[in-house]
Design a protein around this nucleic acid. Structure first.
Length: 264
DNA sequence: AACATCGGCAACCGCGAAGTG
DNA sequence: CCACTTCGCGGTTGCCGATGT
């Protein structure tokens, strides 16, 4: 892609009481080789030491990033498959911008890769989809940078349908884009009294989804599968909003679905 | 052909958490 | 406790190739 050596600048960093000049910018093939060789022979350890011992004029942080995002032997290359795209959307609807956790469910993919993919491709699709649907899709709705669902405590559920104009994802609606923590509302109470900014977008009571899906306004039960769209994994489980342990859910990522196909 | 704009992606930056002395 | 270091994460930047005019 980009030519190596481009925009490489030298920065000074204090390392072991010595002002060492560290490189920044794109990695050269020689640097890649050094790091790769070192990692293969010595394995992972303290990244600062790795940088030093591998003979690289890079900071440990840069080495770590290069290894994780590019050199790791188990990385999967190439475009995202439809299954991967689906899963990313699934997981993002549950986890928000927790790219590392999403990446953990997609073997061979890095958080950076998924983040880039989301920001460049999926986000665009959602935006386009939003222009063709009646549901309000504010620019931020698909970008949870401003809201990290499932943090803790009480939560306000806000929803977004992926209905219409989403190409491959047409069959996946309805989706929940985010389950937003709202500390102003104790427990998981869902009503019109919340002061959450997100509720101003879409509250549960406002959600077209709910209005079209039975009477769920009474803090009622919603099938998890309907809510988070995780397929068969939770199918049939009855989800009481007030009982859901999001902390536990996040802590136990294994409760989320794995991508069940193998790397090429 | 030359220039402008867009999109994808690698890498950096800043922050918070965890570990250590 | 406190200070310091290291690590990991998410957000952002900026380069370059592709595409459009």
């Amino acid at each position: 892609m980009r030519k190596p050596e481009h925009n490489v600048v030298m920065v000074k960093e204090k390392v072991s009481n010595v002002k060492a000049k560290l490189r920044k910018g794109l990695w050269s093939p020689e640097e890649d080789e050094k790091l790769m060789n070192y990692m293969v022979t010595n394995g992972q350890g303290c990244w600062s030491d790795i940088a030093r011992n591998a003979g690289l004029q890079r900071c440990g942080k840069s080495c770590r990033l290069r290894w994780i995002n590019y050199l790791r032997p188990d990385l999967k290359r190439g475009a995202f498959s439809p299954q991967e795209e689906h899963l990313i959307i699934h997981l993002h609807s549950i986890l928000g911008n927790r790219w590392s956790q999403i990446a953990a469910r997609l073997p061979g993919r890095t958080d950076n890769e998924i983040k880039n993919f989301w920001n460049s491709t999926i986000k665009k699709r959602l935006k386009n989809a939003g222009t063709t649907t009646t549901a309000s899709l504010s620019p931020n709705n698909s970008d949870s940078s401003a809201h990290h669902p499932l943090k803790a405590g009480g939560a306000t559920v806000f929803m977004q349908e992926y209905e219409g104009g989403l190409g491959d994802y047409g069959a996946m609606e309805p989706y929940v884009l985010g389950l937003e923590n709202d500390l102003s509302v104790p427990g998981l109470e869902v009503n019109n009294n919340t002061t959450s900014n997100y509720d101003k977008n879409i509250s549960v009571n406002d959600a077209h989804y709910l209005s079209n899906n039975n009477n769920n306004n009474d803090h009622g039960s919603i099938k998890v599968e309907e809510l988070v769209g995780v397929g068969n994994h939770w199918q049939g489980e009855t989800f009481k909003m007030g009982e859901l342990d999001w902390e536990g859910l996040l802590a136990n990522v294994s409760s989320l679905p794995y991508l069940d196909f193998h790397l090429q």
